[in-house]
Amino acid sequence: MTAITQDSTVTLHFTIKMKDGSVADSTHNMGKPAKLVIGDGSLSDNFEQCLLGLSAGESKEIELAAADAFGMPNPDNIHHMDRAKFVGDADVEVGIIMAFSGPDGMEIPGIITEIAGDSVTVDFNHPLAGQDVTFAVEILSVE
């Protein structure tokens, strides 16, 4: 069996669980596994270290502190926008996640955290920033 090393291409299923046991995200829900290359920067170093040495068919639960998972919330990622920019969007309410165009044209999700008069506060931090999470991984293949 091939074990995961630096630069391995890994296909895996993962489930992200919150401290209370609720599921935040899962590739099982999407119906297809994730594929990534160890060392390409898509995972935190600490998370990658936990995957090294695993082989296809193995499962593992990895507890990650917020800093090693999605990072801590960055106050620079919280923006106040004019409510007029949301014209025609009746759904502007606290808790709604909306897609916004980033400076590079890529869509970035932001969650509306507050509405005060004509000011809408949008938080562009990852929804799981600042949260300790458990990743349950199931390794499907290692190349």
Rank of each mutant, 00 (worst) to 15 (best):
M1P: 04
M1Q: 08
T2I: 11
T2C: 00
A3Q: 13
A3W: 11
I4T: 04
I4F: 07
T5F: 07
Q6I: 10
Q6N: 12
D7P: 09
S8F: 13
S8R: 14
S8P: 04
S8N: 11
S8C: 14
T9E: 12
V10Q: 08
V10S: 06
T11N: 03
T11C: 04
T11Q: 14
L12A: 15
L12E: 11
L12K: 15
H13C: 03
H13D: 11
H13V: 03
H13Y: 09
F14H: 15
T15S: 10
T15M: 09
T15V: 13
T15K: 13
I16Y: 07
I16V: 15
K17T: 06
K17C: 05
M18D: 06
M18R: 15
M18L: 15
K19F: 01
K19G: 00
K19H: 08
K19I: 06
D20C: 09
D20P: 02
S22H: 11
S22A: 10
V23F: 06
V23W: 07
V23H: 06
A24H: 10
A24I: 08
A24R: 14
A24M: 03
D25F: 15
D25I: 08
D25E: 13
T27I: 05
T27V: 10
T27N: 04
H28N: 03
N29K: 13
N29W: 14
N29S: 13
M30Q: 13
M30D: 10
M30R: 15
M30T: 10
M30P: 00
M30G: 07
G31S: 03
G31V: 10
K32C: 01
K32E: 01
K32H: 11
K32A: 02
P33D: 01
P33M: 04
P33Q: 02
A34M: 08
K35G: 00
K35F: 00
L36Q: 01
V37D: 00
V37G: 01
I38P: 02
I38A: 03
D40A: 10
D40K: 05
D40L: 07
G41K: 11
S42V: 12
S42I: 08
L43P: 01
L43Q: 05
L43V: 02
S44H: 12
D45G: 12
D45Q: 08
N46A: 12
N46S: 06
F47Q: 06
F47D: 00
F47L: 11
E48C: 07
E48W: 14
E48M: 07
